[in-house]
Write a protein that binds this DNA or RNA. Sequence first.
RNA 1: GGGGAUUUAGCUCAGUUGGCUAGAGCGUACGAUUCACAUUCGUAAGGUCACAGGUUCGAGCCCUGUAAUCCCCACCA
Length: 899
Amino acid sequence: MKFSSSYEPNQFEPDIYAAWESAGVFSPSVPTVPVDADANGYDDRLKNTSVYSIVMPPPNANGNLHIGHGLTVALEDSLTRYYRLRGRSTWYIPGADHAGFETWVVYERALEAQGHTRFEYDRNELYARVWDFVAQQRGNMEVQLRALGASCSWNDLTFTLDENVVDRVYTTFEKMWNDGMIYRGEKLVNYCPKHQTAFADIEVEHKDEPGTLWDIAYDALVVSTTRPETLFGDVAVAVNPNDERYKDLIGKTVHLPLTDREIPVIADEHADPEYGTGVVKITPAHDFDDFEVGERHHLERIQVISEDGHMINVPDKYYGLTTTECRKQVLKDLEKEGLLKGEKKLTHSVAHCYKCGTIIEPMLKEQWFVDVKTLARTAIEHLNNNEIKFYPESKKKVLINYLENLKDWNISRQIPWGIAIPMFKKINEEATDEPDWIFDRRTNLKEIEKSGVKYIRDEDTFDTWFSSSHWPIVCTNWSEENPTPYYPLNVMETGVDLIFAWVARMIMMGLYVTGEVPFKEVYLHGMVLDAHGKKMSKSKGNVINPMDLVVKYGSDAFRLGIIRGRSAGMSQAFSENSVIAGRNLCNKLWNISRLIQSLVDETPEDTLSRSIFSDGENTEQASPVTTGASLRSEKDVSLASYSTLNMGEDWICREINSCLEQVEADIETYRFAEAADTLYSTIWDKYADWFLESQKLYKNIPLLKKTLETLLIALHPFAPFVTEAIWQNLSWTQGFIITQIWPDKLEFDPISAENFENIRIIVSEVRTTLQALPGANNAKKYDLMYDRDSLVEDNLDLIQSLTKVPHLRALEGSPKGLRLTLANRELYLDVPEKVVKEYKDALTEKILSVGRELDALNLRLQNPNYVERAPEHLVKETRGQIAEKEQLISRLKNQLTLI
RNA sequence: GGGGAUUUAGCUCAGUUGGCUAGAGCGUACGAUUCACAUUCGUAAGGUCACAGGUUCGAGCCCUGUAAUCCCCACCA
């Protein structure tokens, strides 16, 4: 493979992914089912390898990835690749979601487009049809996951309708049924009349909307309501027990308008004396609060709105009207009878279907419910026991708070596309000894017979979250007989918006099924907002498609871009600029590698070996006096395949080591942005700008190779493709980078490294001073002069090449020109007096500003408390600084007098 | 009503146990450039760390309060 001269990710990314995949490098090295060959109760292969497991939140099987998936994959895959490099047996388990409701909505729309409705088919037929529909659409998201570089174990992909998932869900359901945690209840549920299905509370969107509050006379009492059409379902009116105005009426009855019914006046705390007239009509079948009032007072529930949104159980006049039509008619009739006492505009929040926006109708329905008391309490105990570490930490409190107030969980959905609820209802009523409902796994059958009694299957399917809550269990193939070392997961990474719907339920279910928390850590990423911090939405037209960016800038650039500036739990803006910055880094690395490869190519083998085992031809540049070269013994040379010969080499080793330390600490605490940032500045600002510039003189080939390899491996988790592409292009590397071992720290001489740091300071000051001088093109005009300075004297070529000054020479005679001030060295720029004079203002300003700093330092030291109480090293440091500043000022002043 | 956050450069964000002159990227200005890279190199400007108190030798960081913004949950007859 030949390095192409420009970085073009599209030309190698697909090939590299295919090569990884066919080499099987994504599979965990330790099989996922434990093997106890010698029957000692332990899988011996686990002795030397620790495992790392992580599951992917399953994207919609027949959908496309959106920007949030892009972030999720970038984060999860970086973790996966990092721990793989660290030698763990790493299992990143991909998934695909049947996306019950989402897919159903799409399918139903397609069905309607063909002029059909769901009601023409029975449940089995619909299920089969959607299955085919999904099968046809499937595959896009898997292609896209590959494009993002997800190093997941494809053989282990779990689909949410896979047999083992259904099995596990049924097993749990059966256990809950036997434990008495499942009950069938007639309760008010959130019901979408359009989709004709119930929703869990979390699936409902509340929006503030303008509405009207009408006052209606029920005899002597005036009630306030926003929904007059439901009055036919009223079974009582309530007043607050402490409300003096109505005390006498409690227990009496009032006439329900437009009907011939009398309804009781009851006392209930629900009635707020401050609100409206303080009198509330009670409609248990169509209002959540009223339902509870009804429970407390054992009131009848009269359903007056049908599941398709029409009036039922009402006087003939109103029968069959839609709710909207009925409201109009009711208001008209009330007005006519003089019972409408007033109306007032208000804003109230209205529940909407999160998919179609239809107003959610609270509907009385028989559904399956999970009693969550024990589940929630157990989860809270384990959370309080710190068994799961949260990133960000604050979300744990939020979760506990949620669990403390959790209501029973409605798990029935009236949608064919999902896992059938394995419950069957008795048909023959006369078989009174048999239970009304029985559990049975044969949900492929509509009707079953047991002990001579016929049962018919419940048509409903499970809430997606009921099965999803088993995700860590089913993905790792955990079972009672075969506990796997990969369960609990090391981490659960997902969006902060799923903390209740998914994370909470996985914890409850994990504990219920396995007795263990399902994961040891949770990392919740925030939402990806647009460049202006606004939510992305189709209607705003600000949606960013991750694949567009991958095509435009490459997968690595996208991954580097999307994690930039992002921290746990925070919703943060995202713009193409950060992807461009990522692409630029990849390009930089590409060119760095090309440079090093070309240096390798042009260095003959025999020179190479000489430079390892002797000082070689570069002795003249290296400083025998100041670099501490003598500390580098032959031992170093023989231990490693590289050695440091020049200061810049020790310096870069020092910088790379501290970079590695930083990156390790950051990844292990999920500080992705900081880790990538550290790599960015190490590769660019340190490796390329200083080390490689200095290597243009010295060319320590073994060290160049070693340091490049180190940086490539360290960046691999974040930019997998370009690092692998370079690895494959380099002439001396072997195998895949993805399966390399995370680099050890490099050996270096700290004194020498510090000397290079001093050279950097000198070079920087020369550059700054030259830029500040009047006139253009200063860099090439003036010589740099030094006076008895061995560090400079020993590194003339290096300094000259970095500063680009024409010549470096020893000062002859008395000082002249412009003295460099910050470096604290005898260095002068050979600048004519005229130019120096023009520089005078800058110099004066400098003296003033250093003076201000000096004053501040002196003030600190004059504070006796500081000297007494601050740590000694800080006080000492301050004294040192004062001395330094004083020297600097005197040098500056001296300079000024010379002018 | 309950809970959780945020406020630092023009923009997007770092700043971990309190410690020197508060950092980065982008953007801006100025300068450079055959010799790995214009997807480049060099330099600079730009901040009362939302506000007011407090603790401390020392506060962007800790405490109290205020303001603004955001998210979630519940309620709104």
